[in-house]
Design a protein around this nucleic acid. Sequence first.
DNA 1: GGAGTTCGCATACC
DNA 2: ACAGGTATGCGAACTCC
Length: 824
Amino acid sequence: MPVDYDYFDFDGRNYVRMIGRDGDGKKVCVVDSYDANFYVILKRDADVDKVVKKIKGVEIRQASRVTKVLRTEVLNKKFLGKAVRAIRVFVTNHKDAHDVASAIGDLDGVDKRREYDIPLVTKYIKEKGVEPLGWYTVRGQRTEDRGQAIEGIDCYLADEIEPLKIKKEFVPRILAYDIETDDREIGKGEILCISVFGMSGCRGVGRRGKCGVVGSGEFKKVLTWKKCKGAPEYVEFCKDEADMIEKFIEHVNDYDADILTGYFSDGFDLPYLKAAADKNGVEFGLGVDGRGPSFTRGRIPSGKIAGIVHIDLYRFIDAVFSQYLQSETLSLNEVAKELVGEIKEDFDFSRLSDMRDLDWRDFFSYNLQDSVVTYKLMGKVWPDILEFSRIVKEPVFDVTRDRMATHVENYILHNLDRFGEIAEKRPVYNEMNERKAKGKFEGAFVFEPKPGLYENLVMFDFTSMHASIIVSFNVSKLSFSEKGGKDFYESPKFDLDGEKRKIYFEKKIGFFATLLSEIVEKRKKYKGEYNKNKNAMTKARSNAYKLLANASFGYQGFFGARYYSREAAAATLAFVRKYTHDTIDIIKKAGYTIVYSDTDSIAFLIGGKTKGDILKLLKKINKGLPGIMELDLEDFYRRGLFVLKRGGVGGAKKKYALVDNKGKIKIRGFETVRRDWCRLTRNLQSEILTKILENGNEKAALKLLKKVVEDLRKRKVGLDELMIRTQLRRPIGEYVSEGPHVVAAKKMEAQGVPVSTGMLIEYFIGEGSGKRIGDRVCLAGDKVSYDIDYYLKNQILPAVENIFEVFGVDVKSVVEGSEQKRLF
DNA sequence: GGAGTTCGCATACC
DNA sequence: ACAGGTATGCGAACTCC
């Protein structure tokens, strides 16, 4: 079962190296040859023989190797759904495919060159079908050195690899790690301790002896070069930092892990360790080949370790998992609390300046906890990683780092051969800029609600609306046409770059819509399976297909996509608007009052009608919907509150509160759900909304408001209730406008607190003079009392004013009233 | 120097 | 750079007199 993939050159040729487990749970390595290739798409009138002859003569001389064309195949293929004549060109080395392709671009008869820009491992998996985390029978020979010595692991050079139909589940052997340092900046400070945590005995064949890996129970260690009396037995004292790093390498390599995991370890722990190793002159020999991690370039470097999949859980959670989380930040603490229910012990880092034995013991325990929590988090998220890896057919290493657009694209790439399709190329830098420069196109429709407290509502919503439209009308780059006809679907008339017009899509379904329809089908099927048999694996599978379906619309509008189509994306939205509007009209005509609608949902009053009437209406609407489009009953609601926009005229969109018939409250858009408002405001507003929805009037809510205002005036409110949290989304110097959080960040820096992009900056507004609010920004430790006036006028009032306005109650005097009196 | 307006920015909804 | 557009609303920074 291949888990990790990479490749190497030997005698100028490409080999793929897969490291995984054999049927006995032993770590093995399989090397397979790979014949690099790409496609040349010919013009219709091309002289095939002549082109082939010319291609065969191409030779690229590099410093270290000479790349030649090995052989060619002339084939009937498809490109963007259309039949083409193509030459498949096999070259000696994948790295030179691009150069060979460039060299033949000008030949007569050559239309396009494609697939030279697909990563080698992706090409290999696509062409040879040796997919991640599947079982295979390998026939081959034990290898001697192929330029890639791996100590202690059997290595085979494959002659033949065949898929096996067995359902033996793979339970990876996981080791979690975490480091603590005395300086956040990589390479600057010292690593004080390193913790590792795993469970032994669950599987795998570790090398016995050294650190008692094999057996049962926990494997936990905190390595440190600091001294401390009375430390628990898991603390292993080292001579110095260098010795500690060497011991860490030894532990990791001996543990025989499939996965080494950390939290933000791509961006912190691993590069920090590497830098510390370099500084200390320690060979950072992590991994089965002893070469240590390699870092690929990118926004965040990705640390790859041979034979052990290094997973930075933060990145996977950030890219694909976070949209299902309630957590307001993706800190290990918060995410673990939500997913694992674990409350991590905290450590006050200001203690670091003066550490006694007790402090060190707390510190080591804190360090170990981070590894324990990361380990547990991995257990929770692993089913999703596994499913994504199998569905998208990309290695675990990549799947845990790719964003959704890449997942969608990889799913497409790995399924193209079923359609005989040659893959489209990736846009080059210029093309991406051109795409971005075209600007936005019109999006979905949002209904302006009339402010009020409504009774008895129902909400309909379209299931996977964008995906179902793409499938139903075959909306994609390959089916797009400027002109219509009986073989074409017609888009609604819409504004496309300043011109009102219709565009068309072939009725004959292409691979894009076919693949998406399969994704939607599978999502339905696995959702059903999950409902019958609820477990982490069925849930993860159903979830992965849901995510792919939801991201596929965004993919077509994403400037970096191979199958980008501005027309397809814009038309999808035109269809979205049309069907939402049409449905609203039908509901209105049936005698109902529409209260709200956003994109794919419609809320309306039940009025005097029954539940049966509503269901009948839903059925009728569904009968009229085309293709796989489907309208669903979202829920019935006892009450719903909509408010006025602040200051301006009209009802506020994307802001409402509902209570269903079981008393469950749903709050959208209000300050309650925004993390950049202080807790006092958020809690107060949430309670006010709850009381109003439960009672149907504002009386109790008003009483509560008065009480909180009084408490605030009397300074009875704790500072932690008043802290405002705002994310620093760019380096301090890049801000044009210096908002309060930027002022706070600068203050932190001045106090020696490290500040970095992405951090949540916490501050409160204190008393003082100064024109700007920013001039009164205070940090948690500041000995300044909070500014009552600010919290009344800028926090509480704006959050409650428009709610009470619905009942004709002006709370301005309640909130500001006695302040005025005092002035007089 | 104050009032009014625009713009930058963060964060939400779907 | 790493799915899209729509929307609210604060506070700073501008314009204008």
